[in-house]
Computed example of a mutant assay.
Amino acid sequence: MSVQFGIIGGGVMGEALLSRLLVQKLYQPSAVLVSEPQPQRREFLQTKYGVGVTADNQSIVDAASIILLAIKPQVFETVTASLKPSPQPQVILSILAGVPLTRLETAFPGQPVIRAMPNTPATVGMGMTAIAGGEHTQPAHLQQARQIFAAVGEVVEVPESLMDAVTGLSGSGPGYVAVMIEALIDGGVAVGLPRSIATQLAIQTVRGTTELLQTTGMHPAELKDQVTSPGGTTIAGIAQLEQAGIRSALIEAVRAACRRSQELGQ
């Protein structure tokens, strides 16, 4: 079988997409080729998933009809500088934070390029991905991208001008949530809970709250009001959070990550 899907970069996010695409049978292992510089990583991917592996990025460009760029944005120029464009039509999907469509289209002239920003929950099929199409991208190409990224969670389409904002919110967001969960766990320990119990309580509380909001479509403020009774425990805790500036801290975190994404694209 010819190579249909090629991945340049066999790291965590590349593997996350690979594993879900194979589980959902969007591609057969024999139709996938992954380029990865580390021999141990190549061996791991080949053994676990049965896909083709290579250390040569050019072989991906020469063979694949859809290419996923899953490398670090800092090495984008180094990796793409040595690539010779394919004369065959291809779809280029990039998950490189901060790298704009103009730079991607320069590296892959004439090809439809789609910039995407998934996040790490993609590794368990609960990701959030935003996509933005380039100059040569047609609706059919965007539909292909939607199908691929839907394998790891939900997908939205946004103008490229908002991709850095997406990076600051959902791309970096799992880190913010992890810090909040860790703090809740430490808070539980501070008031006497065993760490294992505090961990279970914190994780399931966050998980249940997000599921409730998504299932009901309830606004977060409405849920907050429902669980905040007059003179009760929740309002006491929320008052302390407000005094500590939790809202402004999270807003500034998103802004800082957005700015860093813009810097990476320069």
Score class of each variant (00 low, 15 high):
150 A>D: 13
243 Q>K: 15
58 Q>W: 07
241 L>A: 11
209 T>Y: 04
183 A>P: 06
229 S>P: 02
214 Q>W: 03
189 V>W: 06
202 A>S: 04
246 I>E: 06
160 E>A: 02
171 G>V: 03
152 V>M: 00
187 G>M: 06
228 T>K: 04
243 Q>W: 12
86 S>P: 02
93 L>K: 00
3 V>S: 03
129 T>M: 03
46 Q>I: 08
117 M>G: 00
153 G>L: 03
19 S>V: 13
205 T>H: 07
121 P>L: 03
247 R>G: 08
135 E>A: 14
66 I>P: 00
140 A>Y: 08
31 A>E: 15
23 V>L: 15
94 S>F: 00
263 E>H: 11
151 A>Y: 01
128 M>N: 08
143 Q>H: 14
254 V>W: 14
41 R>D: 02
111 Q>V: 11
140 A>C: 14
219 H>V: 04
119 N>D: 02
51 V>D: 07
162 L>S: 11
97 A>Q: 00
93 L>I: 02
162 L>F: 13
250 L>G: 08
209 T>I: 07
44 F>Q: 15
15 E>C: 07
173 G>Y: 04
194 P>L: 06
255 R>Y: 13
230 P>E: 09
225 D>V: 08
136 H>F: 15
219 H>F: 05
238 I>M: 05
264 L>H: 08
17 L>N: 05
85 P>W: 07
41 R>Y: 05
